[in-house]
Simulated scan of single mutants.
Amino acid sequence: MVSEFPVFKSHEYPISNTVKKYVCHSRKVLELAALYGWEPGARYTNLRDVRGVSQLGFLDINWKDYDFERHLAAAKAYRPEVTVAQDVVDRAELSKILDQAERLSEYANTVIVVPKDLRLAEYLTSLIPSRYRLGYSVPTRYGGTEIPISAFGQREIHLLGGRPDVQRDLANRLNVASLDTNRFTLDAGFGDYFDGEKFRPHPTGGYEVCLKASLENMNAIWQNYRHVAATMEKESE
């Protein structure tokens, strides 16, 4: 059986108050987000908007039609801070995906492994080596991670996509070290912005105005969040 979710002893261990935030979008959005401390991301299938960046933050994948060799080539060319391996939707594929993650780690500082098969839940943290960050796909109408949150233990987590309010709520139960989202860019196109709790129409509107307001409010909800660093000893109770 999977144990209950552990309590972090954040007051007893050295902590990091910086949750890395990444956005994959147009050059305009990347440049604007950088002013708010967000780092640039891109899928390996569309690297046009990150050409010339000094450091690629997040190299994302085309999960519907994954091509490992193309992904590896992009990682080698751009040396991202973080990249994500193919989703583990079938436990039988875990060994192959961990081998791919090992090769990706030659070119990325951190590799995220995303467990999706419910059969991984009971032994999740022992089956996936601690040198990999675990990915949690934030539930949306298109799907998401169904493995119980308790299975992730105290491992560092990257939140993949979803609404900013849902991401922040998950962080109360997961040890979140990084996240990516572009949901706020979609709403900005309709004149909506994230107000710290939900998306609503902006009083004046305008795409860039909505982007700036959302970025400011997303930063605000993470301001006092603390995660337990992966290199530090942890305990549960």
Rank of each mutant, 00 (worst) to 15 (best):
K64P: 03
V111H: 03
G206V: 04
D60P: 05
A188V: 05
K198W: 07
R48H: 14
H11R: 08
V19R: 15
N175K: 00
K21D: 01
V82E: 08
W63C: 10
L159M: 04
E156S: 05
V89F: 09
G205Q: 05
A121W: 00
K212H: 05
D90H: 14
P164H: 03
G205L: 02
G57C: 00
V89T: 15
Y44N: 10
L32F: 11
V2Y: 07
V2N: 04
S16K: 03
C24S: 13
R133T: 15
R27M: 06
R200A: 06
V111F: 01
V113N: 02
T181C: 07
L174C: 05
Y142N: 14
Y36A: 09
M1Y: 06
P14Q: 04
T110F: 09
S105G: 07
E93K: 15
R51Y: 12
F5M: 09
P148C: 05
Y225G: 07
R131S: 02
N219H: 13
T145S: 14
S236D: 14
K21F: 09
S214C: 06
Q86T: 09
L104D: 05
D87R: 02
A73E: 15
H158N: 04
Y132M: 07
W222Y: 13
L170P: 00
L59E: 10
Q223S: 15
P129S: 03
S214E: 04
T231C: 10
M1W: 03
P6T: 10
D90Q: 14
L98M: 09
Q100W: 10
Q223P: 01
R70V: 06
I15Q: 13
P40H: 13
L98Q: 03
A101C: 01
D165N: 14
R155E: 02
Q55S: 15
V89I: 14
F190D: 07
T125Y: 09
T185E: 09
N182G: 02
E216T: 10
V84G: 06
K20I: 06
R91Q: 01
K116D: 07
A171H: 08
W222F: 11
L98G: 01
R51L: 13
G206N: 10
P164S: 02
R70S: 15
F8C: 07
D117N: 01
A77D: 11
F8W: 13
D117Q: 02
V19H: 07
S137P: 02
L32R: 09
V114S: 11
A229N: 11
E39W: 04
S26L: 03
R131G: 10
G191L: 04
N217M: 04
Y142R: 12
S236P: 06
Y78I: 00
E93C: 00
E31D: 15
Y136P: 07
I15V: 15
P164C: 01
K212D: 10
G191V: 04
V138F: 08
T231I: 14
A171F: 09
A42N: 01
S10R: 11
V166P: 00
D90E: 10
K198M: 12
L104P: 03
K21P: 02
N109W: 08
N217G: 03
E156A: 00
Q223M: 10
A121K: 03
L211I: 14
Y132G: 11
